[in-house]
Amino acid sequence: MNISNDAAFEEEVRKIAKQLFPGVNPNDSRYADGRERDGLFDDGECVHIFEATVSKKTDKVKNDIRKSSELVGKIRREKPTHNVKIWIVTAEPPTADQIEEGVKGRARARCPIEVCGFESLYNRLFDAREFLRLRSNYPFGSIRNPDNDNDKNVPLSEYIEVRFCDRAGNSEISVSDICKKIQSPGYRGAIIGDYGAGKSMALRHIYYKMYSLFENHKTTQFPIYLNLRDHFGQTDPSEALIRHATKLGHPSPHRLVSAWRAGYSTLILDGFDELSPTQLSSTTRNLRDARLAASILLSNFLSESPVQTSIVCAGRLHYFDDEKEMRRAIVT
């Protein structure tokens, strides 16, 4: 992981640990026995002591294990029915010498000690690479071969970049520009266009751009591309993510929710215009109310996602009566 600042790295480790042990009181103190700890998590059966470091020095791991071992005895006296585990998390994969320090430290601490790299800890939260592999075999929005509507496997090489009008700045914006913007924490955007304008192709291009950045360790955020038509009737983002991962065949669907809540995803939500029920009242007011109700899932994704999560969605230009109605439905 490309983080050289200890404080920033410690925060990343705590984000994951909080999801690995979701029952832990988030207000638990990080101070114990008069010293600051990078993380303390009591899951009811085991107290997990976390120390995180960007250092590649063996002595740093040795000192962190010694400091944590001193705390183990105090925890056992206060919570005799609890187990204790020490976690030493390094930014890069630990060296053989650092791992050996963990083996040596077990005798002193008389508890399990795990020395692991950040990527290993990340994979305990969610196997994003397997998720992305499975997602590549699933349809992307309305993408179809124009010569055969049943053929959804349109090669990436067939993509021709289009430009959209940036309504905020009244200027043109390319998909490459959107790719750059979405890499900034907390970006929110919507691609609006007529049927066949290339919205899904643009979103797929963004998806694979983020996929490449993640695969090459340029970011810890992996893309989640949802076909919103698959989630008609759903309003809870967690349920939608579990359904999505289940449809892909991922072995741990609930873990996708944990990764999303920890802020490790970029959301790509395709087809907000396909959430409406097929049977709608003929009155204008009821049509608007129905569209608003159908958009609750998208609205909840926007409001419940971590602030650092970037989100881009797409839908038809004239699905809403006007921009005011659209903003009321999908902008928080």
Rank of each mutant, 00 (worst) to 15 (best):
K18T: 09
H244S: 11
A314M: 05
T81I: 02
I296R: 14
A96Y: 10
Y211V: 02
R163N: 13
V103L: 05
L125A: 09
E239G: 08
I173P: 01
R291V: 03
W87E: 05
Y195I: 11
V331T: 02
L317M: 09
Q19I: 02
S238P: 00
Y319R: 05
G249D: 10
A293M: 06
T332P: 15
A245N: 07
G193R: 12
D166A: 02
G102N: 11
D6R: 09
S238W: 03
D151V: 08
I178H: 04
V61D: 07
T266M: 11
G263P: 08
D321I: 01
I3K: 14
Y319V: 06
K74R: 14
T220K: 12
T95V: 07
N148H: 11
F126N: 06
G39L: 01
N227C: 06
G169I: 02
I113V: 13
K247Y: 09
S157A: 13
E172A: 10
N286A: 14
D43T: 01
R37D: 04
I224S: 09
P277H: 08
R129L: 10
T90N: 07
K18C: 00
R129D: 14
R30F: 05
K324E: 15
F301P: 03
P237C: 03
P306M: 05
P223S: 05
E70P: 00
R66A: 13
L156H: 12
I3R: 12
S238L: 04
D194C: 02
K85R: 15
F164I: 00
L213P: 00
R133H: 13
A17F: 13
D59S: 15
N216R: 14
V103A: 06
Y319H: 14
D270I: 09
G186W: 01
C313W: 07
T81S: 14
V54T: 15
V312P: 09
T278F: 11
I99L: 15
M326D: 04
E51A: 06
L125S: 02
A128F: 02
A314E: 01
L267W: 04
A107I: 15
D177C: 02
E325K: 01
D166T: 03
R291E: 07
V115M: 09
R316Q: 11
T284S: 11
A197N: 11
R285W: 08
E325N: 00
N63A: 12
L275W: 03
H48D: 00
R285G: 00
R163E: 13
A294D: 04
